[in-house]
Design a protein around this nucleic acid. Structure first.
Length: 438
RNA sequence: CGGAGCGUGGCGCAGUCUGGUAGCGCACUUCGCUGGGGGUGAAGGGGUCGGAGGUUCGAAUCCUCUCGCUCCGACCA
């Protein structure tokens, strides 16, 4: 993509409503545009990142055997009355009345809907276990939206739901998601720590939140320092194997948000205790028969007896992750995208639009890099070098290829790594090798 | 929902107290010089001052109502 063709409205100054780096950079780099409080349009650059995150989540969820579906954003009120949450959820739920005076709502989550879907189609224990997920926009009428997409009213969430015949099966499903979450966040360059969590309005007796450490996090967290050394399961992972040992390891050391914090443990841990702030990016629940009982979702077991489904639900804040990743990865100049989710892998800066050789070599590199299958954003504007450097650093692409007359005299360009700030002069013919050789 | 504050050009702000021709920086347009970290000169374009009503010869400025946004607190992926 040529920058002169791209819709990327960047700002030199930060809008005053942006209080934290991720919000400021997302506005300044042209990722999002606020529509109203807590509601945003996603612009091309931001949407690319969002899609990249979605895709990482999708691939890993599919690996676990979970199957993707897509449920509606608008839900009928009846099923929420059945579960009892229509009243419980309060004003956060956006309620709508259609032209026939039917009560509807913009879904803040989908436990009722999936339970309704499942109970009306599944009859036998032979159909279990199942795990279904979707990535759909949710709406929670937050009293006070803030921090940009980190705490918006409208947000994209991946939510998965597991159905098992018994508790043992449900724990297996829970463990699969637990391990998948470790891997998903890891693939985005994040260190996410699972912590014992409150089950809140979803209910249940087993629950973990996954938190990314960041100074601007909304939650205060405490953890044993060694938890940061635990290994995330690699690509060889087999989701049908016994995962309990992995879960046991990751839950063996103390880690808790302030709501679940235990002062006695803190005293015991002493120097091993770390205190920090965290951003919740995932939350998994095992809640048993809470919804299946309320909504009569059952199957026949092998003896022909009806049994209520054992369920769990598993959320990931997809749109929030865009902000969370920036919080975890930026400097004073701008965003530093991890390669796996970067909107483009490479940015080309042509320092001299009026220099024929610079234009020619930049054009050639642009084609060559694109042909090699690497996504590339080409700054072909007639701007000063300083402006282009500042802009590219703000956008935060992992690799910058800087083409200028000085280097071209020697047949070289400069390649800069945004994260390490390391620069190396590279002969024109070696650029592709350097970029793809990693 | 309690408390506080702010709405003036795309962004950041001054002007409001004390009513009298709407300003500044950045961004934008054209031209020139410049060209390896947001350079520079000249010439331009763009705002019924959030909205409605009122007071006044005259309202961005005073009064009333209203809408929106932000911050602190309580709540949430």
């Amino acid at each position: 993509m040529r920058l002169t063709d791209y819709f990327i409205p960047t700002l030199r100054e930060s809008p005053k409503e942006a209080q934290i780096p991720s919000h400021s950079f997302m506005l300044r780099a042209g990722l999002i545009k606020q529509s109203s409080a807590g509601i945003y349009s996603w612009l091309p650059l931001g949407l690319k990142v969002l899609k990249n995150i979605e895709e990482i989540v999708r691939l890993e969820m599919n690996r676990t055997g979970s199957q993707e579906i897509l449920m509606p954003t608008i839900q009928p009120a009846e099923i929420w009355r059945e579960s009892g949450r229509y009243e419980d959820y309060g004003k956060e739920m956006l309620r709508i009345v259609d032209r026939h005076d039917r009560e509807m709502l913009y879904g803040p989550t989908n436990e009722e809907m999936i339970t309704d879907l499942f109970r009306s189609t599944i009859r036998s224990y032979r159909d279990l276990p199942k795990n279904l997920y979707h990535q759909q926009w949710k709406f929670r009428d937050e009293v006070r939206p803030r921090f940009g997409v980190m705490r918006g009213k409208e947000f994209l969430m991946k939510d998965a739901y597991s159905f098992d015949l018994d508790r043992e099966g449900a724990i297996r499903s829970y463990n699969q998601m637990f391990v998948a979450y470790l891997r998903i966040f890891n693939q985005m360059g994040l260190k996410a720590i699972p912590m014992k969590a409150e089950t809140g309005p979803i209910g249940g007796d087993l629950s973990h939140e996954f938190l990314v450490l960041a100074d601007t996090g909304e939650s205060e967290v405490f953890y044993h320092k060694d938890i940061l050394n635990f290994k995330v399961p690699n690509d060889e992972i087999d989701y049908s194997s016994e995962l309990q040992t992995i879960v046991d390891e990751w839950t063996s050391l103390y880690a808790a948000t302030s709501e679940k914090a235990d002062q006695n443990v803190h005293t015991e841990l002493n120097d091993s205790l770390m205190s920090a702030r965290g951003i919740e990016v995932g939350h998994i629940f095992y809640f048993g028969t809470k919804y299946s009982k309320a909504m009569s979702a059952s199957v026949a077991d092998s003896n022909g007896n009806l049994r209520y489904l054992e369920m769990g639900s598993y959320g990931i804040g997809v749109s929030r992750l865009v902000g969370a990743i920036i919080e975890a990865s930026h400097d004073d100049k701008g965003i530093i995208w991890p390669e796996s989710i970067a909107p483009f892998k490479v940015g080309i800066i042509n320092l001299r639009k009026d220099d024929g050789l610079c234009v020619k070599e930049s054009d050639l590199l642009y084609s060559a890099i694109g042909d090699a299958g690497l996504s590339v954003l080409y700054d072909d504007r007639d701007e000063s070098g300083g402006a282009k450097f500042a802009n590219m650093d703000l956008i935060g692409l992992p690799w910058q290829v800087i083409v200028g007359p000085r280097g071209l005299k020697e047949g070289q360009v400069e390649i800069k790594n945004r994260a390490t700030n390391q620069k190396q002069s590279v002969p024109l013919g070696e650029v592709l090798n350097v970029l793809s050789g990693r």
